[in-house]
Design a protein around this nucleic acid. Sequence first.
DNA 1: TTCATCTTCGCAAGGACATTGCCAAAGGTT
DNA 2: AACCTTTGGCAATGTCCTTGCGAAGATGAA
Lengths: 153, 153
Amino acid sequence: MSEHDAIDLAIMRTLQKNGRISNAELAQKVGLSASACSRRLDILEKSGVISGYHARLSHKALDYKMIAIVHISLSGQFAKTLTEFEAAVRLCPNVLVCYLMSGEYDYILRVAAKDLEDYERIHRDWLSALPHVVKINSSFALREVIDRPNVGL
Amino acid sequence: MSEHDAIDLAIMRTLQKNGRISNAELAQKVGLSASACSRRLDILEKSGVISGYHARLSHKALDYKMIAIVHISLSGQFAKTLTEFEAAVRLCPNVLVCYLMSGEYDYILRVAAKDLEDYERIHRDWLSALPHVVKINSSFALREVIDRPNVGL
DNA sequence: TTCATCTTCGCAAGGACATTGCCAAAGGTT
DNA sequence: AACCTTTGGCAATGTCCTTGCGAAGATGAA
């Protein structure tokens, strides 16, 4: 594992805000020559510190206006049970986030839907069909207060 | 407001998966010449359909290995109460996501911490200090099963 | 239908950019 | 001091991005 100095952090911070900046401009912002900057960026990408770049699309354009938080309990905590559940949940394209959790519920999901009707379909065709589920609890987001891609550096 | 055809959708889908792809490669993937692709992309960006590009940083690589899901209840649902809470929570850099919710709890937060000790600090210095909070419930992620930036188109 | 108009494409060119090799400077170790 | 490792800058070459221009297709009115 490598150490990250101030320049690496500046590269990450800059690319977090503008992931499609040119290498030349990036180099200028962090105070390096283009070649040195390109090499450092290459290391950050290949080591997995920067795991990808993604366009952020306007919610309006995609019509996914509804976010649901879904708490799910399974019938047991056996490895096979968890594995089968996770394999199934990965197939649902509307599930943005899924965590195995400590506490009252086994999994927490963040699900995107176009509207309530769409969510009803997702719930019926996907969530209810997940294996080993004994309890599903859906809550709906009324407002998105924060949605940061990463921790503020 | 413009309509989006299959090519526009292909551009969005591609850039969602790889936001730093070159325009030449993007053009090839969607079946356009580089110039036509560049012009369409320009329109998508300037119209706000694509609102930005962001590098995705590995939380683990940055030593943020711990994700907590925090459920919070406030003392009331008055507009002033919500506004003050939201203004305060926005200041905490460790809060990645915050939704105002329907259901049992008022807010759900996703918080990144380096370790349990770090989370204890965040809880003490930030979360406990949020105004109008009457109940905080923290759960910890044991495993990240899915973390997608956007809905699969 | 026919013509005018608007849109969007592909092609070409020149200007910008990314990458690689090579060498020098800085820092650490024996 | 001598050596080794790391990392930056410069230069060159190949690639890429952008813009102007003309052509093809779509749209609408006479």
